[in-house]
Amino acid sequence: MAQKILLVEDNPDMVVALRMPLEASGYQVFVAASGQDALRLVQELDPALILLDVMLETSTAGFQVSLQLRSPDPKSQYAAYRHIPILMLTAIHTTTSLRFGPDEAYLPVDDFVDKPVDPDVLLEKVRALIEPADLEADHLTE
């Protein structure tokens, strides 16, 4: 079965640009256009990976989504989804000389993809994050 990717992106044209390479590589892509939608769909779909834009309804809504999903509170309603890898879409590296990386407390994501997105780079990062864990499962079902 195809692996599910939840794409959290509010710009429909960006969705097209990202969906094409992901689908061409055999992933099943679902789209959430807001932080609220994203949190709902995570529970509904239990995706293999979340591709999360920083800027949604506000300029940092993406951060809030990642903080909620990775909440260290064991009673959090998202506790079951903490393990899902998050790949964050951001233009920050290309537009400023700021260096920032994933940070468990402040920015709990696994990796970044720079915008404008190079589809080959995107696919490489997606594979790196979901294949090691799911490869075994795939072999078992075969």
Binding site: N11, D13, M14, V16, A17, M20, V117, P119
Partner: peptide, 11 residues
Amino acid sequence: PITVSQSLVRT
């Protein structure tokens, strides 16, 4: 819009 267009063109 530039970023989005660049991503589309690369795809």
